[in-house]
């Protein structure tokens, strides 16, 4: 089995008296798609914000390549090679598509001049347009402000961006929630492609069918704790649904 690139060990996160994560263990390996499942409010978004350096764990450790580390800020996480496509943020409505595309990554497409990085406008437009086309998104005018795009289009741009800046770890928060069947198929194909290139992918979703299609392993969150981590071969779709709903493989109501 390949060595883990990113690990969470006994991580908890509280917001005041709201305990969003309790003692979570998680392993992310290169060349593998990890499905992070859980019902709304289970703590999936909080968990990936910890991985992305947005939140600091209240307790517990983050291991990068086996070494204990801190992800103090999104920039630190990004420099490590962690790319996140967020459900709720990650795109600036008033900026044009191409400016959004390179936001935070400008140095790679800029001229390094004394005191500043000069943006290469036409080069950036071209690269952004190409990267979008690769994902099957046909928006010729990358000067449009993102505010003019549909939710699905915005999500696609964020994904194209993460795919373009081939990261070591690619985290996708509900990437298919707003996409058509055709676009969903494309995105899932991209997820597979990224994995085949050795990227460690974390796919957050509550759509079990999508998850079962591409994920090699699942970690199911239930009320902020890990209900179970299982390989695809060792779990059925129905058992995953039960894990999401009840925290166990059995189908029973939580209330009793």
């Amino acid at each position: 089995m390949t060595k883990a690139i990113l690990e969470l060990s006994n991580v908890s996160k509280s917001f005041g008296r709201v305990h969003s994560l309790r003692g979570v263990n998680l392993t992310v390996r290169p060349g593998e798609v990890l499905g992070l499942l859980g019902d709304n409010g289970a703590g999936k978004s909080t968990l990936i914000k910890v991985l992305a350096g947005v939140h600091q764990p209240t307790s517990g450790d983050i291991l990068w390549d086996g070494v204990k580390t801190n992800l103090d800020s999104p920039r630190v996480a990004m420099m490590r090679g962690i790319s996140v496509v967020y459900q709720d943020l990650g795109i600036i409505p008033l900026l044009s598509i191409w400016r959004n595309f390179f936001l935070g990554r400008e140095d790679e497409v800029s001229r390094k001049l004394p005191f500043h990085y000069q943006l290469r406008h036409s080069h950036m437009r071209e690269v952004a347009r190409g990267a979008l086309q690769n994902l099957g998104i046909h928006i010729d005018d990358v000067d449009l402000t993102v505010a003019k795009l549909s939710g699905g289009e915005r999500q696609s741009i964020a994904i194209a961006r993460a795919v373009h800046f081939q990261s070591k770890v690619l985290i996708l928060d509900e990437p298919t929630a707003a996409l058509s069947l055709k676009e969903t198929a494309k995105v899932l194909a991209y997820v597979r492609e990224a994995r085949n290139q050795g990227v460690a992918v974390v796919l957050i979703t509550h759509n079990i069918a999508h998850a079962y299609e591409v994920c090699d392993r699942f970690t199911v969150l239930f009320h902020g704790s890990v209900a179970e981590t299982a390989d695809r071969e060792s779990v059925t779709e129905q058992q995953l649904a039960n894990l999401i709903n009840t925290g166990t493989r059995e189908q029973r109501r939580i209330a009793v």
Partner: peptide
């Protein structure tokens, strides 16, 4: 435009 989103994209 959005300090939170900018921060999440690595902008200080």
């Amino acid at each position: 435009g959005s300090p939170e989103a900018a921060r999440s994209m690595g902008v200080p």
